[in-house]
């Protein structure tokens, strides 16, 4: 049973992006993965959506990216009117307390995870989203 039918991976490093996709696909709770190179690309895709079923269930967001970084994406994203609630998790290499603190300021951000992403981290993501029911 899928918890997240559609997952956006927003990540500028192509290798990390591919790895994330592969790891996510190994977990049955995660469905389709769409990759975006930076915040701007993902935002443009979200703005262009017409149907509720096209809206992702989960966004895995890197912070440090060119063009539009994770924070700018969150600012733009929080102003969007989407037909469905989207769960956003920060997935970053930064363990800087300021970054963790700042991410807590966004109500859209439901979790902060540091790389590497693996099966355990994915299970935590599911637990967090379902409140332990899955």
């Amino acid at each position: 049973m899928k918890v997240f039918d559609l997952v956006y991976v927003i990540e500028d490093d192509p290798i990390t992006s591919i790895i994330t996709e592969l790891v996510v696909k190994q977990n049955a709770a995660f469905g389709e993965v769409q990759k975006y190179m930076n915040g701007q690309e993902a935002y443009d895709a979200l703005v262009a959506l017409q149907w509720a079923e096209e809206v992702p269930d989960l966004i895995l967001l890197d912070l440090n990216m060119p063009v539009m970084d994770g924070w700018e994406f969150l600012d733009a994203f929080s102003a969007l009117q989407l037909p469905k609630q989207v769960c956003v998790y920060v997935l970053t290499s930064s363990i800087h307390p300021e970054d963790m603190e700042k991410s807590r300021m966004y109500k859209e951000v439901k979790g902060y995870f540091t790389k590497p992403l693996d099966g355990d981290v994915l299970n935590q993501m599911v637990q967090l989203a379902t409140g332990g029911r899955a």
């Binding site: 790891v23 930064s94 363990i95 693996d118």
Partner: peptide
């Protein structure tokens, strides 16, 4: 951050 982003890839 910079070392972790690569080491995480290596691990994965």
């Amino acid at each position: 951050h910079n070392i972790r982003s690569h080491s995480a890839n290596l691990t994965s």
